[in-house]
C-alpha cells in the first residue's frame, strides 16, 4: 500500500488562558490515503474544525500545536518555518470553509482572486493563469466562465460562490483538500450538487479529502472512512459502512441512533443524555463516561486507547460487540 498522503500522530492543540493551558485536541491520530475521503464527524466543539485548522497550520494565538506530528506526503509539516508552510498551503493542501458568503474578498473580482492564487503557486504568466482560471471555473460547473471572471462575489448565489471557493482551493492542484462543513450554509438542493461536485473532483484528480461535518448523511454519501470525534479525541475510526452499520463505541452508536433513517426503521430516535464536556472540564478516564450507559469502573480511571475491533478502531473499555448487542435485543 502506498504511504498515506496525510498522517497525523498524537496531535495536541492547546489554548493559553488565564487559568493555564486548555487542551482542545488531545492526542488525535489518523491517516488519509491518496484519493481517499475521510469524514470527520462530531458535535460542535468536538475539535473537528480545529484539527483541520491545525493540519493546514492556521491555528491562531492563543492556540498552538502543543504536541504530535503532522506528515504530508512523507514530509513533516508542523515544524516547517512560516514561509515554507505558506508555500505548502494552497499548493499541497487546499481548504474550503463553511460559509461561501464570507469566504471571498468582497472587493476583488473573482477572476483576480483566482489568478492571484494561481500565480502565487506557479510560474504561470497572467495570460496562462487566466486560462487556467477559466478552466477551473468550468470544471466546478460555472456557466459562461470566461465572462464570470469579471464578476464580483456578490453577483453570485450562495451555491455558485461555494463553487468559486472550491475552484480557488483547487487552483494549484493540491494533494488533499480540507473541507470544513462545505455544505452546511447551503440550501438542501444545492448541498446535493456540491457533494456531487466534490465526489467527481476526487475521482477525476485522485485528490484526498478531509471532510469535516456534523451531517452523517453527507458522510454516508461521499466518504470512504469516517472518524468520530468527541471532546477533542477520536472515539472511533474506520470504514464508513462498518462505523455506521456496526458501531463499537457507545458514543458512535448514540450518534447513529439520533439520526433518523440511517439504522433500522423500527428503532426509536434516541437522544444521548447530557452534553459534551467543554475543554477543561473533561472527566478523567474516558471523556464520554458521564453520559455512557455502558460505563464500567475502568472507564472512570483509565483513558482508553484506540484498539481494533473488526474493521474499525474504537477507544472504549466496554465496546459494543455483536454478541452483546444481539443479547440486548
Amino acid at each position: 500500500m502506498s504511504p498515506p498522503v496525510l498522517s497525523v500522530r498524537d496531535l495536541v492543540v492547546e489554548f493559553a488562558t488565564r487559568k493555564g493551558p486548555l487542551r482542545a485536541i488531545d492526542g488525535v491520530s489518523f491517516d488519509i490515503a491518496r484519493g481517499e475521503v475521510l469524514g470527520v464527524v462530531g458535535e460542535s466543539g468536538a475539535g473537528k474544525s480545529l484539527t483541520g485548522t491545525a493540519v493546514i497550520g492556521l491555528v491562531e494565538a492563543p492556540g498552538r500545536i502543543a504536541g504530535g506530528e503532522i506528515h504530508l506526503a512523507g514530509r513533516r509539516i508542523d515544524t516547517l518555518p512560516k514561509d515554507e508552510m505558506r508555500r505548502v498551503r494552497g499548493k499541497q493542501i487546499g481548504m474550503i470553509f463553511q460559509d461561501p458568503l464570507t469566504s471571498l474578498d468582497p472587493l476583488m473580482r473573482i477572476g483576480d482572486q483566482l489568478i492571484e492564487t494561481i500565480q502565487t503557486h506557479t510560474a504561470a504568466t497572467r495570460a496562462q493563469a487566466r486560462d487556467r482560471a477559466v478552466h477551473l471555473l468550468e470544471e466546478v460547473g460555472i456557466p459562461a466562465a470566461a465572462e464570470r471572471l469579471m464578476a464580483h462575489p456578490h453577483q453570485f448565489s450562495g451555491g455558485m460562490r461555494q463553487r468559486v471557493v472550491i475552484a480557488l482551493a483547487l487552483a494549484a492542484e493540491p494533494d488533499i483538500v480540507i473541507a470544513d462543513e462545505p455544505t452546511t450554509a447551503l440550501d438542501v438542493s444545492v448541498q446535493a450538487q456540491i457533494i456531487a461536485l466534490l465526489k467527481r473532483l476526487t475521482r477525476d484528480h485522485g485528490m484526498a479529502v478531509m471532510l469535516i461535518t456534523h451531517d452523517m448523511g453527507v458522510i454516508a454519501q461521499i466518504a470512504d472512512r469516517v472518524a468520530v470525534m468527541y471532546a477533542g479525541r477520536i472515539a472511533e475510526i474506520g470504514p464508513v459502512r462498518d462505523v455506521i452499520g456496526r458501531p463499537h463505541h457507545p458514543y458512535t452508536a448514540g450518534l447513529m441512533g439520533s439520526i433518523p433513517g440511517l439504522r433500522s426503521e423500527h428503532a426509536r430516535l434516541k437522544q444521548i443524555p447530557g452534553a459534551m464536556p467543554r475543554p477543561g472540564a473533561i472527566p478523567p478516564g474516558c471523556a464520554f463516561n458521564p453520559r455512557c450507559d455502558r460505563v464500567i469502573e475502568r472507564c472512570r480511571a483509565e483513558r482508553p486507547d484506540l484498539s481494533p475491533f473488526g474493521h474499525t478502531s474504537a477507544a472504549c473499555h466496554a465496546p459494543i460487540s455483536r454478541e452483546t448487542e444481539e443479547a440486548g435485543r
Binding site: L58, R89, G90, F97, L107
Partner: peptide, 26 residues
C-alpha cells in the same frame, strides 16, 4: 479576523498580498 482573510491564508497567499491587497482595501 474575517473568513475571506483566513481563506486567503489557507490558499498560501503571501503576507504582503493579504495585508495590502486584501485587508487594507477592505
Amino acid at each position: 479576523r474575517t473568513d475571506y482573510i483566513r481563506f486567503c491564508r489557507a490558499r498560501g497567499l503571501t503576507d504582503r498580498a493579504i495585508h495590502f491587497r486584501h485587508a487594507l482595501k477592505n
